[in-house]
């Protein structure tokens, strides 16, 4: 089997130019360049109210095939009980079960993930196939008390907190593009991870910022997400 392709070049987001235009300050995590914060250094309040962050450069990977659940268990990954549920691992890795036999792994906010490292280095068992999720999908985080209200402008699934619990997954259409929405709260702060086609990330970013405007939402860096946690 072909392993997930990697590069030793520093990863920079497809949204890099938009971040630059918004006066972003960057930070390097492993081989990833991530926005630390934008013009304001303290974006915690913004993130608690309504924030949008780009984590597309952070590590993630995916596996599918009938052998996947057993193989992942052998690696020490704790599996969500059913499809369309996600579970945070002890190392902070988010494991999203997209079907009976498909997993999406996303790193913690430090860009570190023992689970991902283990899985990418481990030999794939029979009927386990790797998926290049770092490249196929962008990763945005929409967070804050107004996040559900914002999503209601772009997505036809009821994602309000009392209807869509922490750890729930919706594979659906967001602003007319397909994506995976995982509710993954940051401490007390309501938060949704949105994984979507990487070539559409600029469109999605712009659409979300537009939808957020009426609620006074703004882009936030990873520092604010960590502070919420």
């Amino acid at each position: 089997m072909l392993s997930t392709l990697a590069t030793d070049a520093l990863r920079r987001s497809q949204l890099y130019r938009r971040h630059m235009a918004m006066d972003a300050t960057f930070t390097t995590l492993g081989d990833s360049v991530v926005v630390s914060h934008y013009a304001s250094e303290d974006e915690t309040k913004q993130a608690q109210h309504l924030g949008l962050a780009d984590l597309s450069t952070l590590p993630r990977t995916g596996f599918k095939g009938l052998g996947t659940p057993d193989w992942a268990l052998d690696l020490g990954i704790e599996l969500p009980a059913r499809p369309n549920r996600a579970l945070l691992q002890s190392d902070g890795t988010l494991v999203a079960r997209l079907s009976q036999s498909e997993l999406l792994l996303a790193s913690n906010l430090n860009g570190l993930s023992e689970s991902i490292a283990n899985a990418t280095q481990a030999e794939l068992a029979e009927r386990v196939y790797s998926l290049p999720r770092s490249d196929s999908h962008s990763w945005l985080v929409l967070c804050g008390s107004q996040a559900a209200e914002t999503l209601a402008k772009v997505c036809g699934v009821d994602l309000r907190p009392h209807k869509f619990a922490d750890g729930e997954i919706a594979q659906t259409s967001i602003a007319k593009i397909n994506g995976v929405i995982v509710r993954n709260d940051l401490g007390e702060t309501l938060s949704y991870c949105i994984f979507s086609d990487s070539s559409s990330v600029e469109f999605l970013w712009d659409s979300l910022l537009d939808a957020m405007a009426e609620f006074e939402g703004a882009a936030v860096g990873i520092q604010a997400l960590r502070d919420c946690r």
Binding site: Q14, R17, K153, V154, A175, K176, I177, D197, S199, S200, E202, F203, S207, D210
Partner: peptide
């Protein structure tokens, strides 16, 4: 506010 998805390659710019 209709959505017209746009895809861009990584080399777009």
């Amino acid at each position: 506010r209709s959505f017209y998805p746009a895809q861009r390659s990584n080399m777009h710019y």
